[in-house]
Computed example of a mutant assay.
Amino acid sequence: MASLETHFLATLFFAPIGIRRFLCSSSLFLKNPSLFKSKPWYFSNPKWKNLDLYILAVALPLASFAEIFIFSSLSGHSTYRFSFFQQFSSLSLFWVLIVFFVIYDNLDHSLFNETFVFAYAGMAFLVEYSFSGVGVTGLGTVVYELLAHLSLLCAGCCLVLSVKRTAFFAEFFLSFGLVFKGTWLLQAGLCLYTDAFVPTGCKKLELLPRSPDADVHCELEEDGLRGMALVNLLFALHAILITVSSCVIFGVLSSSKKQRCAETSGSLLDQVESDSLLMRPVHEIEME
């Protein structure tokens, strides 16, 4: 993440995926809570509607190659070499995860089942958490530390879902974390890479003449504390706004009788319901 543009592009990926995941999982949960099971990816029918998945499959390798290009241009600086290598590793892990989604139907499900996919996603988020903000100084440390907490939240939710896929609260917080990461990345870009949003008493510094990287430093300790307080306030406002929006959307979905997602109906759900019916005692079915 080296500029406002890259932060904005990351927002365009994270936020829509989180919103789409929340809509689909909530629709599936509201249709029949007792039969809810989280899915690594909620596929649309027909598959060409999964445009975000295929865009990610192409965009992540391009982003990795961009990291290599920047890495080679800054090869004389060991700190930045290490930082870009970390970002490249994190992008590669998530690209492999997207490949899993694309070819999932052709994999051996006895080995690469949904539990494995969730566990792998949790590991990828943990790697991102460990790499987030490395080499960043000044006010950027606070911004990326908060972003790292969101990665840790997503990792924990994925690990919970790998053990218990019926845990809707984990699905909810995973969607919440993805949307929050998207909005906070945009906020981070505005705070660190634009002059208009730099806190009073602080200024943006170019780290290297050849690099778009920048950081925000405050000359006085009082200005630095004020800047950190402002960042924490913005983080809390993002959390409140996303929480309220999620509750409103969930309420609207619960009151609507229309199907909100392709996977809330169709052969897959019918199969699950029929299996559940076969497992119930005969006298219960007769009573109904």
Rank of each mutant, 00 (worst) to 15 (best):
L241R: 07
S162M: 03
E5G: 04
G177E: 09
F125R: 00
L30Y: 13
T141V: 10
I240C: 08
L146E: 05
L53A: 00
A119K: 09
V134K: 07
A10V: 07
E171I: 04
S256N: 13
Y129C: 04
T243F: 12
G135E: 07
F85Y: 11
V179W: 02
Y120M: 12
P61I: 08
L207Y: 00
F116M: 10
R226S: 11
I240A: 14
T264V: 12
S130G: 09
N106V: 10
L205P: 01
G133Y: 01
F13K: 03
R21C: 11
G201I: 09
N32C: 06
G227M: 04
F22N: 04
N113Y: 10
S3P: 05
L230P: 13
L146D: 04
I68L: 15
Q271V: 05
R20M: 12
L126C: 14
V58D: 00
A10H: 03
L35H: 11
D223Q: 09
Y42V: 00
S27N: 10
S3C: 08
L35R: 14
L23H: 05
N106Y: 15
V58Q: 04
I240W: 12
D223G: 02
K204Q: 13
V142I: 12
P61D: 01
S73W: 08
F88S: 11
F172M: 06
L9W: 12
K181T: 10
P33R: 10
P33T: 02
L277N: 04
R210I: 15
L269E: 06
S255I: 06
F116Y: 11
L56W: 05
S255F: 15
K164Y: 05
E288D: 07
N32P: 14
A196Q: 12
V58S: 04
D52L: 12
Y80W: 15
A124E: 03
S274F: 13
G133Q: 03
I55M: 12
S265M: 04
Y193S: 00
K49I: 08
D213Y: 06
D52C: 01
E67A: 09
A66Y: 10
K204M: 14
L233P: 00
